[in-house]
Amino acid sequence: SITLWDISIISPSLSLCLPAAQPISSKLHEGWWAYKDVVQGSFVPVPSFWGLVNSAWNLCAMGKRQSPIDIETSHMIFDPHLTPLRLNTGGRRMGGTMYNTGKHVSLRPDKAHLVNISGGPLGYSYRLEEVRLHFGSEDAQGSEHLLNGQGFPGEVQLIHYNQDLYANYSEAAKSPHGIAVVSIFIKLSENSNAFLNRMLNRDTITRINYKHDAFLLMGLNIADLYPDTTRYITYEGSITIPPCYETSTWILINKPVYVTQMQMHSLRLLSQNEPYKIFLSMSDNTRPTQPLLQRCIRTNINFSKQGRDCPNNRALQIDRWIDG
């Protein structure tokens, strides 16, 4: 069962101890940030400091459309104009390289294989750039997004860039309508999703135990990763790592995918360090939820049969839905 997860990582008052943001040397690697405190003799900023240590990352602290969020189902708005999402693989399977980046398990498609999405809330065609896994050290946490305050063991994020307007991901990430992220909650079961099973079976996952490890996978069918549903939730938000650009349309699929307890255990054994450094589990690689502020959360799930004034019934339906 899923329990409430306290997402507070650091007291807001602690941020007062940090000096005013100073420009950081361009020589500093863009990866100079962390999800959680590590004892390594040097300061590496955790999420509450991302926007304070680098002026180029100020949206992480000052932005008004940040991600992830806690999806409160009572605040969702039914939009009858939201059409099903369209996935186009060209009828071909794809190859991709799986990486341990030190922060995520990342699968990056071979550039020769075009996978794109369109339709739904999107006005353009978006090309798949990366499949990224977030997961927790415990079963009640690990997803970046929450549902009515509850976390899930993990979250798959399929990150796409607008190929109609921009030449590549880097250009799109900082530009309007640049990014579309399809997000799918991960739950535990005795059987795993066919696509994730290719990534997380023992022969594969043990190839990327340490930071910078990589392993090539072939014959992948990205359609296998998508749950059997056309229903989703969508909102306008940001990239969830620095520089936190507010250029992302989020599409959260309304059914989860499943992995086994053993596969989740294998993920927790991945190190965020190189083999010659101390072992630090990659788990809990999540940014805390951000304020919704004035944004709308839209959905193509029609609640009209429940009655407009029944938010409790609506929440109950969502609970059943995510168990789907």
Rank of each mutant, 00 (worst) to 15 (best):
I241K: 09
Y276A: 10
G237P: 10
E246F: 07
Y235K: 05
S281Y: 02
D228R: 09
S248I: 08
L270C: 08
I233N: 01
G219C: 11
I222M: 13
L225Y: 07
H265V: 12
I233A: 02
N254Q: 13
S271P: 04
R231H: 15
N273P: 11
V257P: 03
G219W: 05
I222D: 12
I222R: 13
P275M: 01
R295K: 07
Y276V: 00
I251N: 01
M262F: 08
H265S: 15
L216M: 14
L216T: 14
S248H: 11
L217E: 13
T289I: 11
Q294Y: 00
G219M: 07
L252Y: 13
L270W: 11
R231S: 15
A223E: 12
Q261M: 04
M262E: 14
N273Y: 13
Y235H: 08
M262W: 08
L217G: 12
G219K: 06
R295T: 03
T247L: 13
E274T: 12
N273G: 11
H265A: 15
T229A: 09
I251P: 02
Y258D: 09
T229I: 10
H265Q: 15
D228F: 03
I233Q: 00
L292S: 03
G219D: 05
H265F: 15
I253Y: 04
S271Q: 11
Q263P: 03
E274Y: 07
T247V: 11
Y258Q: 10
G237C: 07
I241P: 02
T249C: 03
I297E: 04
E246I: 00
T240Q: 10
D228C: 05
F279N: 07
C244R: 06
Q263F: 03
S248N: 14
I233D: 04
I239L: 09
G219E: 06
M264I: 14
P227S: 08
P291K: 01
N221Q: 05
N273W: 13
L292H: 03
R231Q: 15
R295C: 01
F215D: 08
R295H: 00
T240V: 06
